[in-house]
């Protein structure tokens, strides 16, 4: 497994951890009652405002912890050098992730168009965000495994 495959695996793990954090700690705080109340929008606003920095910090923290463990276990530095093929694979993975997010965004708008509560739209948006992250990481792993 190359350094970049390991990085993609770590990124996949941190995305899954964040999804678990979201399901366990964030969703249970959803305000009960009227789904069109201002508190619902307030809640989702805070979810996004908090989750964005938390996901960035978590990604960095997981990468650092992984690098330390990897260096201790193998006595070699985890390489951060990316050549043209790594960048090409990254771009293809990003393209797949964007397809998923675009579909999710469209689906979120459909939920609004057919009169579903805004919270459904937010849930679909959050899921498409996580889904696109997962698809990006899995695509990267697949392309590295395939050897392209």
């Amino acid at each position: 497994m190359s350094a970049h495959e390991r990085q993609a695996t770590v990124s996949l793990l941190s995305t899954l951890l964040l999804a678990a954090f979201f399901l366990v700690y964030v969703l249970p705080r959803y305000p009960a009652g009227n789904p069109y109340a201002p508190e619902v929008f307030h809640f989702w606003g805070w979810v996004v405002v908090i989750l964005v920095p938390v996901s960035i910090v978590a990604n960095i923290a997981v990468s650092i912890v992984f690098s330390v463990i990897y260096s201790m276990a193998t006595q070699e530095q985890a390489s951060s050098f990316a050549d043209e093929r790594d960048k090409f694979i990254e771009l293809r993975a990003l393209r797949n992730a964007l397809y998923v997010f675009t579909c999710g965004f469209f689906l979120a708008m459909v939920t609004l168009a057919i009169g579903m509560p805004p919270s459904v739209m937010f849930i679909v948006l959050m899921c498409s965000g996580y889904g696109s992250g997962l698809v990006g990481n899995i695509s990267q792993l697949y392309l590295y495994r395939q050897g392209s």
Binding site: S2, H4, S79, F81, D83, E84, R85, D86, F88, Y144, Q146, G147, S148
Partner: peptide
């Protein structure tokens, strides 16, 4: 040529076409 060994492996196997520069 300042790339990773995996890139050389992929080029040799014909799974990756290098840029003109590479």
């Amino acid at each position: 040529v300042k790339v990773t060994r995996q890139t050389i492996v992929a080029i040799e196997k014909g799974k990756y076409t290098p840029s003109l520069d590479l």
